[in-house]
Design a binder for these strands. Structure first.
Length: 445
RNA sequence: UCCGUAGUAGCUCAAUUGGCAGAGCGGGCGGCUGUUAACCGCUAGGUUCUUGGUUCAAGUCCAAGCUACGGAGCCA
């Protein structure tokens, strides 16, 4: 058997006999001439069966191949501008063909399908071009984030998924039976990150997080992946510098490595090329002023209601979208009202009604992709907030310890992987950004 | 949880005023030496989401329910 190659490398084997192994993505025939578009995971190549060049048995197999049948094909690589594929432009003239399995009638035809049908067949849908492209970009986004942080001196320190108490007071948690006691699935690794920076200085955690909220929107998942850096001796301003550097690097890496995938999903590259620092930084006060001015010019009554805002209220998703549309890059909004943010965020000196929090809103209506803040490092203030929230001191004893043994100013943020992927890929829903989405009413397959 | 829309063949959809349940794709059979969602001919394929109601007659009208989609809230 000739050398087994990956289809992505096919151009390097022009004129040579090779073996490719994979699945039939599509087949079309012209009688004694059959075109088999073969996927192998790395790419796609057209394999051409001429009746005269093969045994009658092999040709009959080629002629009868169904979509997604698994095969091993040997033949000679030749350049042909007509040959479709990824990368395309080269095809394999089939000499020998081995059928591993003739696939049953494949549910996902080359025609259009509805969302419910596709999500019910997600285990097969991931084979489709568009999904293949998106999930490859997702992998690069995660790698780019991690590489950049590693290069900046951050250490990956894993945080637990089963936790004894809520990380934040607001959202609903999944509970699990922990040998007769109640434990919860993590909604953040942040509190543990705060312990870990006192050992390692700059850390991040990366893993799945869980929210039992009954959210049903294009930007929510029940199980989603978050990357959370935390930095000792860090201010909110320095935090924004880090976030900006991270996001710019991620976009740059995707543009550099995935021109092919971005083309498959039809992403407007100019929108991504525009993502370079610095990003605008506006205060919550300023954002409210801008939204009020915008609100004054709206005529549509429904939209006017949606976009109404008074100082002190948190932004809804229409507000975030309207704000983000005022910029062609991501925009930082900082100093949110203390009352709408988490208990551990530092109040602004001399103005305790706002806190040292900062969100990063992505352009094109993708909303908040990063939430971060300076954390309270004063023991008494933190303890008072925990009591005031009625969180129960016992579960937070270890967290308060961090303020007793060498507390330092520190800050951190969390970036939602799926929202970032949706934005960079220009997708209308986060369900396509994760291999197997967990949504309200969706845990299969 | 609230508001809105939809549910017909394996898939995507059509069916006029309430009057015989249809097409394309996919499947099967046959044809074709350069296809790009190939094309041509033939063919099989139905609990019209469920339950109840109105009517000579219901895919179509009414009621309740189920499911999905879109939006809101909450958030990353």
């Amino acid at each position: 058997m000739a050398k087994v190659i990956q289809i992505k490398d096919i151009a390097a084997y022009e004129g040579e006999e090779v073996t490719v192994r994979g699945w039939v993505y599509n087949r079309t025939g012209k009688g004694r001439l059959q075109f088999i578009l073969l996927r192998d995971g790395s790419g796609q190549a057209q394999c051409v069966a001429f009746k005269k060049e093969m045994t009658p048995e092999d040709f009959e197999i080629a002629r009868g191949l169904t979509q997604e049948s698994s095969v091993v094909i040997s033949g000679v690589v030749r350049a042909d501008a007509r040959a479709p594929g990824i990368p395309g432009g080269f095809e394999v003239g089939i000499q020998r063909l081995q059928l591993l399995q003739q696939a049953d009638e494949y549910p996902i035809s080359p025609k259009e399908h509805g969302t419910e049908f596709l999500m019910n067949h997600r285990h097969l849908w991931v084979r489709s071009n568009r999904q293949w492209a998106i999930l490859r970009i997702r992998a690069t986004i995660i790698k780019a984030m991690r590489d950049w942080l590693d290069d900046q001196g951050f250490l990956l320190v894993d945080t637990p998924i089963i936790t004894p108490a809520a990380g934040e007071e607001t959202t609903t948690l999944f509970d699990v039976d922990y040998f007769g006691e109640t434990a919860f699935l993590a909604q953040t690794g942040q509190l543990y990150n705060e312990a870990n920076i006192m050992a390692f200085g700059k850390v991040y955690c990366f893993g799945p997080t869980f929210r039992a909220e009954k959210s049903k929107t294009r930007r929510h998942l029940i199980e989603f992946w978050m990357l959370e850096p935390e930095i000792a001796f860090c201010s909110m301003e320095a935090l924004m510098d880090i976030e900006e550097g991270l996001v710019c690097n991620v976009v740059e890496q995707v543009l550099a490595k995935h021109g092919q995938e971005l083309e498959i999903i039809g992403r407007d590259l100019s929108k991504l090329a525009a993502i370079t620092g610095p990003f605008a930084r506006i205060s919550y006060d300023d954002a409210v002023t801008r939204l009020k001015a915008y609100h004054a010019e709206i005529d549509d009554p429904q939209r006017k209601t949606e976009l109404a805002i008074e100082w002190g209220e948190d932004f809804g998703s229409p507000h975030e979208t309207a704000l983000a549309e005022m910029f062609d890059k991501p925009v930082f909004v900082y100093h949110y009202p203390t009352a709408v943010k988490a208990f551990y965020m530092t109040p602004v000196a001399g103005r305790p009604e706002v806190c040292r929090s900062v969100d990063l809103l992505a352009p094109e209506g993708y909303g908040e992709i990063i939430g971060g803040s300076e954390r309270i490092h004063d023991l008494d203030l933190l303890a008072a907030n925990i009591d005031e929230m009625g969180l129960g001191r016992e579960a937070y004893e270890w967290y308060l310890d961090l303020r007793k043994f060498g507390t330092v100013p520190h800050a951190g943020f969390g970036i939602g992987i799926e929202r970032t992927v949706a934005w960079i890929c220009g997708l209308s829903h986060v369900r396509e950004t994760i291999p197997y989405a967990r949504l309200l009413n969706r845990k299969y397959p």
